[in-house]
């Protein structure tokens, strides 16, 4: 394996709201092609951290580079090099599959032949070609989520951020979704993912666990289970989150 190329580097990153430290002094690195699980209890500071990394929120202090760009100065360049998908907002329900692909493709700077090729490619891979003129609203949830993910990486970003992408999805589709994640990672796209399903934490190469705005643990799932002497990631999570002080 070639030497690890760092695509996200975070040092002493802090975000303060008033006198409340939403994120306090976190440091970590994420490597190219890695599937990085970003876990934490509700209110541990995950969302705030992701917003800073996506260039949507200015950190209070610390240093962070995403895809080689500074989160303070180069937010526009960061946005051009990442993809983002969340459970809450993914696609326009009142547009068709094709219209969504074209719209987001356009937003991510694809056009002409490139967009055409990616569109065909994507429709074929998801077996959505027969349904390309259907409204997204009429698709089953699982298809929507798979489509949303494929669109989030249509421009082959350096990193894709996934915020609880599989919430409420049926168990078979959930696994198909992870197949897509693996495929993207194999192509060298770094996947930064949050989830409430602890079996999905096992699929990640490395997992970080946020507690009270800090990173309480960061390692491979196997090492974490060893370290906490438990059988599953669920128990690791439980042990760490139980110790949380703050309730918001």
């Amino acid at each position: 394996m070639s030497p690890k190329e760092t695509v996200i580097s975070v040092q002493h990153l802090t975000k303060k709201f008033g006198d409340f430290f939403a994120v306090y002094n976190i440091s970590f690195e994420v490597y190219k092609g890695e599937i990085f699980g970003f876990l934490g209890a509700n209110g541990a500071g995950k969302t705030t951290a992701i917003r800073m990394l996506c260039g949507l929120s200015v950190p209070t202090s610390g240093v962070a580079q995403v895809a080689g760009f500074d989160v303070y100065k180069d937010t526009e360049k960061i946005k051009a090099n990442i993809g983002y998908m969340s459970q809450k907002f993914s696609l326009y329900e009142d547009l068709t599959v094709l219209e969504n692909i074209r719209f987001f493709g356009g937003i991510y700077g694809l056009s002409g032949k490139k967009l055409q090729a990616q569109t065909t490619n994507l429709l074929e891979k998801l077996a959505l070609a027969p349904h390309k003129n259907k409204l997204v609203a009429s698709l089953p949830l699982g298809w929507k989520q798979k489509l949303a993910f494929s669109i989030a990486i249509i421009h082959e970003p350096v990193i894709v951020f996934l915020d609880e992408p599989t919430g409420g999805v049926d168990p078979i589709t959930r696994r198909q979704f992870w197949d897509l994640i693996y495929e993207a990672a194999d192509r060298g796209i770094t996947v930064f993912v949050t989830t409430h399903y602890m079996d999905e934490a096992e699929y990640c190469h490395r997992v970080s666990m946020m507690v009270d705005g800090k990173i309480a643990a960061l390692d491979t799932p196997a090492h974490l289970k060893n370290q906490y002497k438990v059988a599953s990631m669920d128990d690791v999570f439980y042990q760490l989150a139980r110790a949380a002080q703050r309730t918001e």
Partner: peptide, 10 residues
């Protein structure tokens, strides 16, 4: 329990 973390779920 949807969208709620493991600890709260338990």
């Amino acid at each position: 329990t949807t969208g709620v973390d493991t600890v709260s779920r338990k």
